[in-house]
Amino acid sequence: MAELDAVIEQTLRDSDLAHEHLGPGRWLVDLPGTHKLKTVCGLIVGEHALRVEAFVCRQPDENREQLWTFLLQHNARMYGVAYSIDTVGDVYLTGRLPHAAVSPEELDRLLGSVLSYADDPFNTMLEIGFGTSIRREWDWRVKRGESLRNLEAFAAFADPSRRPPPASRPDGGA
């Protein structure tokens, strides 16, 4: 375990990632994102493998089946981790890396995968699972003259005035 901890420690330092060593074989790493501001990733050294776990979003308020379908379709193309849900429906990224494969390059690749899969589709996941709440919040803020700054990523679907017009049909109909 000490050998793996040393590899993890050096990799995280070399990557300038904020991290916390919770004890032998237990790490928390902050992965800064663009859409999801931060993803906290746990690295846990087990008997045979390094376990990777990262919370992505809480259980959806609506369209659960649509969100699960979206996540499962992405799982087939992902590297090192896969989307999973816990007993209440919260979404995580989870994976395992055999001890023999733990290297600075592989840890970097794995953490990059976690960041990419948590951050890139984050707004789409929120639109699917929380669209009604986001639209309601948008409308409430507009009525009260409140800032929309942290909702701007959802303007195209939350703000009726910004929605693109429907595409015309190929047969000339509207």
Rank of each mutant, 00 (worst) to 15 (best):
K36R: 15
Q73V: 08
A158E: 07
E106K: 12
R169Q: 02
E65P: 00
T39Y: 11
I134T: 06
H99W: 07
R135G: 02
S161G: 00
D139G: 09
H99D: 01
L37G: 13
V88Y: 10
V56I: 15
D171W: 03
A82D: 01
R162S: 08
T39E: 10
L111C: 09
W140G: 11
V81G: 06
V114L: 03
G89P: 04
T124R: 13
L126I: 12
I44Q: 12
E106A: 10
R141Q: 14
G42D: 00
V56L: 10
S133L: 12
V45E: 06
A167R: 11
R144S: 13
R109P: 06
R144K: 15
P60W: 01
T124K: 08
V45R: 00
A118E: 08
R136Y: 05
S113P: 02
T94I: 07
L115R: 13
E105P: 03
V88S: 14
G89L: 01
Y92Q: 07
D86G: 00
V52D: 07
N63Y: 08
V102A: 07
W68V: 05
S168H: 11
L151S: 13
G172C: 01
H74V: 00
V81I: 11
L72W: 13
H48Y: 11
E137S: 14
E146N: 14
S133E: 14
F122W: 15
R162Y: 09
Q73T: 12
G131I: 06
L107G: 06
V91S: 02
W68E: 06
E65T: 03
V114K: 05
V142M: 13
S161V: 09
A153D: 12
A153R: 13
K36E: 06
V91L: 04
G131M: 06
D90W: 05
T87C: 01
W140A: 15
V142I: 15
S168L: 09
R169N: 09
I85M: 03
G80Q: 00
P104S: 08
T94A: 05
L111P: 08
S133K: 14
G145E: 09
E106S: 12
D139Y: 05
L111N: 09
D139V: 08
V114M: 02
A118C: 12
P60H: 09
L126N: 08
Y92D: 07
A158D: 08
M78I: 10
D120I: 06
I85R: 00
P121E: 06
E65G: 01
C57Q: 14
L37Y: 09
R149I: 02
E127I: 03
K38Y: 13
I85P: 00
R136H: 12
G172L: 05
S116C: 02
F122L: 02
V114W: 06
H48F: 10
M125N: 06
P165G: 05
T39M: 09
